[in-house]
Every structure is written in structure tokens, then in C-alpha cells.
Design a binder for these strands. Sequence first.
RNA 1: GGGCCAUUAGCUCAGGAGGUAGAGCACCUGACUUUUAAUCAGGGUGUCCCAGGUUCGAGUCCUGGAUGGCUCACCA
Length: 493
Amino acid sequence: MSESELNINELKKVRLEKLAELKEMGIEPFGRRFERDSMAQNIKETFSEWEGKTIAIAGRIMSKRRHGKAGFANLADLSGSIQLYFRQDDLGPEKYELYKKLDIGDILGIQGEVFRTQKGEISIHVRNLYYLSKSLTPLPEKWHGLKDVELRYRQRYVDLIVNPEVKEVFVKRSRIIKEMRNYLDDRGFLEVETPMMQPIPGGATARPFITHHNALDMELYLRIAPELYLKRLIVGGLEKVYEINRNFRNEGISTRHNPEFTMLEIYQAYGDYEVMMQLCEDLISAVMFKVNGSMQIDFEGQQLDFTPPWRRVTMLDAIKEATGLDFSLIKGDEDARQAARQLGLEVKEGASRGELINEIFEQFVEDKLIQPTFVYGHPVEVSPLAKRNLKTPEFTDRFELFIMQREIANAFSELNDPIDQKERFIKQVEKRAGGDAEAHMMDEDYINALEYGMPPAGGMGIGIDRLVMLMTDSPSIRDVILFPTLRPRINEP
RNA sequence: GGGCCAUUAGCUCAGGAGGUAGAGCACCUGACUUUUAAUCAGGGUGUCCCAGGUUCGAGUCCUGGAUGGCUCACCA
């Protein structure tokens, strides 16, 4: 006997005995294909059409109430759950014995007639039952469900079985993404796939995961963003492209950060950041309406209103509003450092005006942005891939969408000047040499692509997980990712 | 990575001031042919997260560790 068999608990032993008994009766406990013709919720919603009819249904036994020679059980499928009624006089002693042996968690195929009990519960009067899968491990308690968050994330399959609201979140997540695809496909955008493993990880400032390719004997990085590849496609003439896929960032984990997360990135040739702003507002509000049926949602007790148009404010105006500081009057780096110190910020040696503007924004403004708000006009220092603003070249044509203090989208007019781009890469490389592990690496091939000529373009990234959090009122990113990253646990299933 | 908190039965949780382990659900035995958190009678199934230490004695106190949650830092 192996150790795991020795350590098996009593509850499991009982089920293994039942399994053996089923086999002795000639019943295969792990069945095969079952042709079902109905779903639980559908039967309940349109009962009059089903009453008295014989149907076939399949699902998992979630509860059982036996009364001597008759009894009930509840069967759950994807749609919901429905009550089953078993009666020895109708089933015969052999099949009734199968009912008696049922455990909560077993997966059955059922044939029977739809009816309503004396107490009014729509039910199925079972005529035949087929074991499709015997459950050997008992499920958590029916009333409280599974609450232990660690177990919920580690064993999401159990979470999905016993906590119906979890299933709803992920069904909704799927619908949100589907509606995004519909929206973009309808407007002529082409969905593409670009490398997840990149020799130079670009398109964002973040630490990458490093891996190694044996045959090529080279380091590869899991992508931190698809941006530079998608823009190569804009150079190539695909004009309107998007990608919905995972990014990987080797950084801290929190309620808003998972090492792998899903981004939607969109690029449109001949557009700019204002086109993207419009697209962003249209896209998110359209998805919101299709999925939620309303432009208002509750998030952690806060009413959010997605009705367009959304507020638009420059970063400098937002700072002025929150702090009283008018950076249009604070010109040099030294004056900026002085102003930042007055706000109580710890100012790094040599911090530039643009960097400080960004820092002040993050410190004093972000947490005030509750309703959907576009903040635009970011300093060029923190926007190495964005086009400069024509009138104020120290700022870029860039915006971020904030909802509920979180950055949901980031977009800009794409920098298509290869000479400017190269200079900005060089600045990033200098920062990197100075110890900033998140600064960009030089990407010569990307410069090469730009040198062939990239049409002016607008580009945007939308964090899908955070949007799903908002739309499903989920406090943690782990609630919207089926299998969030956790430390592996030894000696546990 | 720092701070705070948590970890007890399959699940949800109690365990006062250190005295040798509890409840509900689940499970097992029996009764019950339209119940529904079914009911009734009986049964406790445990590495009290791990390793040390203090003590006559530790689920409880101390030290270290593991895992998780929140939070700060970092970021999207």
C-alpha cells in the first residue's frame, strides 16, 4: 500500500467500498457518453412546456433527502439545479438501491418525467439513472460552501462546484471578452497573435520573466507587452489590429496584480490618442451595456456610472485640482523638485520635472478618480513610446482611463519617428545601466521597422482582469482569474 | 521584501486564566413512499500548520519556519 492509501480518511474509504459494491452489481461507476436533451434551469423556466414529458438530463448530485422507500436529490448542471424524485415502487428495488448508494458529488445521467411536487417544486420523477462518475472525495458543506480562500484558489474545481456565484463571475468574464471581440471585429479590426517569448521584452516598463531556449541556446523573455510587435504589423500594413492575450511581469502579487494577466491591445493606423479615447469609451460602455444591461454598477458599495461621455482632464489640471500646484507655471527641474518637496514627497537626486509630475499625480490624484475619467497629457519622460504633443513637446499625446482609483486603460498616439524613438531608447538604456531593471532595452529591429515608415497610429491597452473585476464587483484580481499564481504547496493535493 | 492577522474533524467554526478535543453540516447505523438547510434515535471520524523551547503538564505561553489574507513598497 502506498502512503496516500494508508492516510486515506474514513469518508473516502466508505466511498471506495460503495464503488466496489457498484462493480459487484455490474454497474460501471465511471460511465461514458450520455445524450441529454434538457438543462435544469430551462426546465424550471418553461415548466408548462415540459410537464409530463420524459427528458434526459445530466449533472452532479448536490444534496440528498431519503424517506424510507422514496427520496429526493438535487442535480446541478451548468445552468442550475433541479430536484430529482426517486420512488422504489416506480424504480424497482435494484435501481432504488442505486439511489440509496448515491453520494453527494456523484455525476449521474437521469431519465424521467417532469412534474411538480405537492410543495410546488419542479422536479424530475426518475425512471432510470446512470452512473457517469462516482465521486470519491466528499464535497465541502452544502450550507456554508467553501470559504477558505486558499483552498478556493488552489482547488478552483471545488470552488466552482460548490459556490455558484464563482461560476457566474467566469461566465461573465467570458461574455465580456466575447463582446469585445464582437465589437472590434465588427469595426474591421484584425485579431492577431504575436510572440509570448521575446528576445527583447519591450512595450512597457516592467521586470520580465526569463527563460532559456535549449536548441537556440539563448535567453528568451516572457513578454511584458505585445506592443512593439503589434506596431510592426502597423508598419506591415495590417492597419487595424488587436490582440487579447496574456502578459507576464515578474513583480509583486497583490489584490490588483497577478504575474500573468490579460491585456487587450488595439492599434489603428492613421488614428491618434483622441480616436483611441473615443474607441475606449464606446467599447467599454457597449460591453458594459451588453453584459450588465445597465450603465450603472455597484462596486464595493460605490455606484459607478459608465454613461458616456466620461470626464476628460489633463494631468496638470488634475494635479492643480488636487494639490493647488500649477505646473504650467513651474518650469524647470529645480523648481519642480522644490514644489514636490513642499508636498512632502521624497525627491530623488536629479529627478526631472516630468518624472515629478507623474509621481505627484500618482500620489495625490489617482485615489480621487472614482467615476470613469480620462487623464491625458503625460510627461514624455514616463512615456517612451508615445508621440510628443505638438504645442508642448515635453508632454505626450497620451491618456489613461481611471475608474475606481485603478488604471484601466493606457493609450497614446504612437511615436513613429525612428530618430526620436532611438533617442528615447538610448535614454532608457542609460537608466537601465544606472540600475533601473524596468527600463527599456534597445530594440534595433523595432527601430529598423520604424525606419521603413509607420503610419501615424493610435494604440491602446485595456487591462481585462481589472475591467472584469469592476464589472463583477470582485475585490481581488484572484477572483477573476481561474487559477491565480500561488506558491506551490508540498504534501498537499 | 516590511508590518498586522490567520491556520483546530472532509467543510464552516467554538475552545475564558496552561489541566489532555467540541458544535453544526457531511459521514455511518436504524425509522420514515412528495421532502427541500427534511425530521427522529444512536455513533466522533483529529499530525490542534511544522520544528524547537518553557512547564509536572502546551491547541493555549516563547522562538524559528511554512502557507494564506490584508496592508505598505513595486507595478498594470
